[in-house]
């Protein structure tokens, strides 16, 4: 049996809102370590990998592995019914055909209970090994979101160039071009404002902005985003959770 209680419903709300436009049907695999999701979007360009570690929950028990096949659009509708500050408990039997969500308002005795029907979802699992990346950058997630949104007004593609002392984001379109250059900086008072670059090799990679527009929906999950890029391989965009992560793997675009 699964019983996982979140101190605040807002965390699961944010997670679901962050991924529901990338993938619709996905299996939430629950084990003693927490909940994991891996799913690929229909175009097979973007992969979502989620770990909500058991330490995120104020109470957590899961005696044996349980898979919850979830339609995220329906899940999002139910999860919006609870308040952000409510306790949220997920409950499922060992071989469930539904999952129960219990919201508890901390300021009153109100308890709301919803159940979501589960589905058999037959998705392929991709094996992703730990890779050495040419470059790893860490920057404020909100800045990355703004840069991508601004440049998406000009082009469908975002070019990222990384050297040891700068990160350059570029977009070239029919109506004009744009670029934003960032320099590494350490902010001791506000570490979440820092920008770091670890470089093994200079990077010049291009990605589809429509996928990046979905990735930056994870912005509210973490102050910082970690971007790991190698030339000619998928890049990893990561929002760290208190225990766990939301990762997106995005395949690059190449010059024809």
């Amino acid at each position: 049996m699964l019983e996982g209680k979140f101190e605040e419903a807002s965390l699961l709300k944010k997670v679901v809102e962050s991924i529901k436009d990338s993938v619709q049907l996905c299996n939430f695999v629950c084990s003693e370590h927490g909940i994991t999701v891996q799913a690929v979007d229909d175009s097979r360009v973007l992969l979502v990998s989620l770990l909500i570690g058991n330490e995120v929950f104020s109470d957590y028990r899961c005696d044996r592995n349980i898979t919850l096949g979830v339609d995220l659009k329906s899940f999002a509708k139910i999860i919006r019914c609870g308040g952000n500050d409510d306790y949220l408990t997920l409950i499922a039997e060992d071989s469930p055909d539904s999952v129960t969500l219990v919201f508890e308002d901390k300021n009153s005795d109100r308890i709301s209970e919803y159940s979501l029907k589960l589905m058999e979802i037959d998705n392929e699992f991709l094996k992703i090994d730990d890779m050495d990346y040419d470059s790893v950058i860490k920057m404020p997630s909100i800045d990355f979101q703004k840069i991508c949104r601004d440049l998406s007004t000009l082009s469908e593609s975002l070019q990222i160039l990384i050297t040891k002392d700068s990160i350059k984001f570029m977009a070239e379109g029919e109506t004009g071009n744009g670029s934003v250059i960032l320099k590494p900086r350490t902010d001791i008072d506000k570490p979440e404002q820092s920008i770091t670059v670890k470089l093994n090799n200079a990077v010049n990679s291009t990605f589809g902005l429509k996928y990046i527009a979905d990735i930056v929906k994870g912005t509210s999950l973490s102050n910082q985003i970690v971007i790991k890029i190698s030339n000619r391989t998928p890049a990893l965009f990561e929002y760290k959770l208190q225990s766990g992560y939301l990762r997106f793997y995005l395949a690059p675009k190449f010059e024809d």
Binding site: R44, V45, I128, G208, P234, A251, K253, F254, E255, D256
Partner: peptide
């Protein structure tokens, strides 16, 4: 023009 690659060109199915 640019070609969009897909993830199955890099990652193996388990």
């Amino acid at each position: 023009g640019r070609i969009q690659f897909d993830l199955y060109q890099y990652f193996q199915r388990e």
